[in-house]
């Protein structure tokens, strides 16, 4: 079974925000909601690296585990989706998500955040594939069209890879072997719950 994953290759990412606007464009995400964002570490000094991050579609997803209304579900491809009709906008998923993926359309005074929105791996939501209702709530369902996420497809340097975990990992591995250098990939370990270079093991709650 395919397991959809993102990898962002920090050796390539140039913080061009192409992925971010591709997402806005394809999914008509409004101002203030950033399903994807780019973070730069060591900004402005040698060793500077940028990483594009959205939902990692975790195998053991904390968001899913804490959602009080159980509105998350996981597709066959391992994509973590949610149902906005059910979501109550409590914000728990955003507290739990290690990556800050869940977004809310409003600021949340009196807890009024609106319905949570997050990266869908361009796989829409529970509505019928490709329906207007699905588009309005979740954006485009590219997976159903046989296409990969807009952000990765448009990434200016192909730093951001998306697709079946094995394939993506292979591509990345080829690059790494070619470079003969480090193997650290953004989110890989965390998303798979495995050890990441230089980090502690992610205990999980198994």
């Amino acid at each position: 079974m395919a397991r959809m994953k993102f990898i962002c290759d920090s050796e390539r990412c140039i913080e061009c925000n192409g992925c971010v606007t591709a997402c806005k464009n394809e999914n008509e995400v409004p101002w203030g909601v950033n399903r994807r964002r780019v973070v730069t570490l060591n900004d402005g000094v040698p060793g500077e690296r940028s990483i594009s991050v959205a939902c990692m579609h975790c195998s053991d997803a904390p968001c899913m585990a804490v959602c009080p209304v159980q509105c998350f579900y996981r597709t066959e491809e391992g994509v973590v989706l949610h149902d906005k009709d059910v979501c109550i906008g409590c914000g728990y998923c955003s507290y739990a998500c290690p990556f800050g993926a869940p977004q809310f359309p409003s600021q949340g005074t009196f807890g009024a955040r609106g319905k949570m929105d997050k990266c869908t791996f361009c796989a829409g939501g529970p509505e019928a594939n490709g329906s207007q209702a699905e588009f309005e709530k979740y954006g485009r369902n590219r997976l159903a069209e046989g296409k990969l996420p807009a952000c990765a497809e448009m990434c200016s340097t192909k730093a951001l890879l998306a697709g079946d975990g094995d394939v993506v990992a292979d591509i990345f591995r080829t690059r790494v072997v070619q470079r003969g250098k480090g193997a650290e990939v953004w989110g890989w370990g965390t998303a798979y719950g495995s050890r990441q270079a230089g980090t502690q093991t992610n205990g999980g709650s198994k």
Partner: peptide
């Protein structure tokens, strides 16, 4: 499915 509460009060996804 689709008798969503969400769509109406969402104001989240603007139509293209």
């Amino acid at each position: 499915v689709g008798v969503g509460l969400a769509a109406g009060q969402l104001a989240l996804i603007r139509k293209a």
